[in-house]
Design a protein around this nucleic acid. Structure first.
Length: 462
RNA sequence: UCCUCCUUAGCUCAGCAGGUAGAGCAUGCGGCUGUUAACCGCAGGGUCGUCCGUUCGAGCCGGACAGGGGGAGCCA
């Protein structure tokens, strides 16, 4: 009977003394003259299973004993419960079929590797404990987000990856073209985009928000969850050129509804992953970020705090802390300021709201003071900003005025403005960086280590 | 893009007052009746990131470039 290792760990007693077959990859072999041990991972489970093989039992002992790490095998044998050993059970092999003998220059040792080195073998690193756990959590976290929103009646919208709006206002964009760049480079003429594939200049999306707002006006509660591209030359452990983003949008909702939803979502997805990835999370708590569980518990168990930008500035000024960047009303909060607020002052997640309109996007709702907008950032200890959102400006005339104020051409956004023309309604939404959430959940400190094949400036290997 | 640190065997690292290299792991061979980062023995493996300079002599000093880490800005 073929069985997964996960299944065996779920209920070892059900398989006591039964003959089963497991298939997997050798993580390590220890052998002596007439018997040996194999640690096998079959991919279904973070934990390995120990295979015991003996010279007078399996007919290919010498071959098995010499198998290099990473070789693939199929093992048939009896499940033996071993309550006194380090592992709860093992398989006493009766037959070991060798599927693929690995080459002896396999780049992964049993020993610890640096993450920098493992990035150079990104195609092999999911076979290590750390990356196996990271990418399992990534998968489960994605499902957690879908489940959270679907259970609440949100509709999942696939907004376009290729977009023609060239100024969504969120940074440098990657251009998409089928024009012959080699030829264009040599000519002095201006590029004629009417000859390009779409008949106009197009780019990869930097945000699905404007598109999803139109679906919000049909389905009421919607969300996007997809890849996003930024051509910024920013080289940090928290930025990638290609990353995933979650953007919910709710009609008939104000900023308070928005923050409430964000808080519920964060708590829900943390609990969801904790429940479904206990081994992986245990591993992170032990080896990657000691204290991880305490950190997450503060988030799931506390009521998030709220403070306005104006009050936050006051708090920072009164703190008497000598910041590298002095605080003044009107300036954007720097990382050091955000971390002071959430780590030292509030000591838990905190929403900062009502930022000066000059430092925020055009689509955010202008407050009655005409100086601030209904924006919110969720700050969490150790990371700083993890969510950014706002109530949207639903008044057509105010929105148009804001666009002009910020140097945008309203006619380029005619379809977006139509949402304010045909049955406009107050609405709000936010954006969550998927990878940043994974980093927060796992304690991994570099975004390149939570994306299977990360893309950052000067790197598109694999 | 700016600041700062790093670059020695496949991997992780050591090296000294400037005198032409070492360990562990990995690999190969051998040994071992319960291991679990197994252990013991033997062996192979390096133009010390690249180029230029100082010096009788440079892995070690100086410069440039490349690659990487961390911090900052931008943001998710």
């Amino acid at each position: 009977m073929k069985i997964s290792v996960q299944r065996l760990y779920d209920s070892p007693n059900d398989y006591k003394d039964m003959i089963v077959t497991v298939e997997g990859w050798v993580r390590t072999i220890r052998s002596s003259k007439d018997f040996g041990f194999i640690e096998l991972n079959d991919g279904t489970c973070f934990k390995n299973i120990q295979i015991v093989f003996e010279n007078n039992v399996v007919n290919n002992y010498a071959e098995v004993e010499k198998l290099p790490v990473a070789s693939s095998i199929s093992v048939t044998g009896k499940i033996i419960l071993t309550p006194d050993a380090k592992q709860p059970f093992e398989i006493k092999a009766e037959d070991i079929e060798i599927c693929g003998v690995s080459a002896s220059d396999y780049p992964l040792q049993k020993k610890r590797h640096s993450f920098e080195y493992l990035r150079t073998v990104a195609h092999l690193r999911p076979r290590t404990n750390t990356f196996f756990a990271v990418f399992k959590v990534r998968s489960v976290l994605a499902q957690a987000i879908h489940t959270f929103f679907q259970d609440r009646g949100f509709v999942y919208v696939h907004t376009p990856i290729i977009t023609a709006s060239d100024c969504e206002g969120a940074g440098e964009m990657f251009q998409v073209t089928t024009l012959d760049l080699d030829r264009i480079a040599g000519s002095k003429e201006k590029v004629d985009y009417s000859k390009d594939f779409f008949g106009k200049q197009t780019n990869l999306t930097v945000s699905g928000q404007l598109s999803v707002e139109t679906y919000c006006m049909a389905f009421r509660n919607v969300y996007t969850f997809g890849p996003t591209f930024r051509a910024e030359n920013s080289n940090t452990p928290r930025h990638a050129s290609e990353f995933w983003m979650i953007e919910p949008e709710m009609a008939f909702a104000d900023l308070d509804d928005d923050m409430s939803m964000a808080e519920q979502m964060i708590k829900y997805i943390i609990n969801y992953v904790m429940e479904r990835c206990p081994d992986e999370m245990e591993f992170f708590n032990k080896f990657i970020e000691p204290g991880l569980f305490d950190k997450l518990k503060v988030v799931t168990d506390s009521k998030f705090d709220h403070v306005t930008y104006t009050d936050a500035i006051k708090i920072l000024k009164e703190s008497k802390v000598l910041f590298e960047n002095p605080v003044e009303w009107g300036c954007d909060l720097q990382t050091e300021h955000e971390r002071y607020l959430t780590e030292k002052h509030f000591k838990k997640p905190v929403f900062v709201t009502d930022y000066p309109k000059a430092i925020k996007a055009f689509y955010m709702k202008v407050n009655d003071d005409n100086k601030t907008v209904r924006a919110m950032d969720l700050l969490v200890p150790q990371v700083g900003e993890i969510i950014g959102g706002s109530q949207r400006e639903e008044r057509h005339d105010v929105l148009v005025a804001r666009m002009i104020e910020m140097g945008l051409a309203p006619e380029d956004y005619w379809w977006y403005l139509d949402t304010r023309k045909y049955g406009t309604v107050k609405h709000a939404g936010f954006g969550l960086g998927f990878e940043r959430m994974i980093m927060y959940m796992t304690g991994m400190s570099n975004i390149r280590d939570v994306i299977p094949f990360p893309r950052v400036p000067k790197h598109a290997e694999f």
